[in-house]
Design a protein around this nucleic acid. Structure first.
Lengths: 157, 157
DNA sequence: GTCAATACCATTGACGCCCATAAATACCCA
DNA sequence: TGGGTATTTATGGGCGTCAATGGTATTGAC
């Protein structure tokens, strides 16, 4: 399947180029588009990133909303209209557009944060602060997750 | 199925390498990623460890939560963003990152503690203390576990 | 022509791979 | 059953490779 895991902080050079972490590139390698899809988060000061496959899944999911409904309108504007296809160069770097960098407050370094099916790009400082907050909250709230049973993917033994 | 059982204490060399116990490697052998996934526990001073298969199960389970929901955000930050893919070398060793070692208070030796489907990595001293505590508590509380009936052949669903 | 995007090349530092050794265990055979 | 040997595991260190990064050249659009 290929998940986006871990957090990587990479430098943004004066041209606005950043290396996409090699492991992220590996999970995106067999997808149709050789690069990432990026759009500005509408809940956080960060950039949402994913591959073309996930974008198509989002599109499928959005179709459960009625066509021409306000929800559909909003979601389209927030995601599809804002999404940019950023292909990487031979070295695995993408060029971050100005307005996207501004939205996330990214200047010299960018943090690629794995979220499983997707990832986010943050200003390292901003993400550190958020992470500390979440971790502090987790100490008292102790979040849990009901585990789904193992998928029956033919492992006989 | 292959369970993580027993506790093994191994040395951390000056490069930060530790041997993953051979029996643990054996249970992970036929998984897609040749190594372990490790993330800092958000309740204890230890490292949570598992294989890629378990991580994918976690990801599947997390998708029952809505995309962009706060619960999803928190869980991603605590697990997926913090998860490191530590592949082992031909000798079966992994490289423990600095901050991970610091979180668990590991310096010279590391204790691999089996927990069935997953395992944990502790500072041996810290784990000894915790184990004594748990054992003392068990003397008075006498915990029990309702046994599930034996599954006939196939998996649960 | 200018500007920006992209391809090309060069450096370095971390990590993965190979060796070699020691200890512990499993195995074999008398 | 006991002794001896072979195999596996844990550990230590040197070296090559690749990912990340910075710079330069080339291309193409306006």
């Amino acid at each position: 399947m290929g998940l986006f895991l871990s957090t990587f902080v990479n430098k943004v050079d004066r041209k606005g180029r950043v290396s996409v972490p090699a492991t992220f590139r590996a999970t995106l390698a067999q997808q149709s588009f050789q690069g990432i899809i990026a759009y500005r988060s509408f809940t956080n000061a960060c950039i949402e990133g994913c591959g073309m496959d996930f974008m198509e899944r989002l599109s499928d999911s959005a179709q459960t909303l009625d066509a021409f409904s306000p929800e559909q309108e909003d979601l389209s504007a927030l995601i599809f209209a804002d999404a940019r296809q950023l292909s990487w160069d031979p070295e695995g770097r993408i060029l971050l557009p100005e307005d996207v960098m501004a939205h996330a407050g990214i200047t010299e370094t960018a943090a690629f944060v794995g979220k499983g099916q997707t990832f986010q790009i943050w200003s390292p400082d901003a993400y550190r602060a958020l992470e500390a907050e979440i971790r502090a909250r987790a100490l008292s709230s102790r979040p849990t997750l009901p585990l789904k049973p193992k998928a029956p993917a033919g492992d006989s033994r």
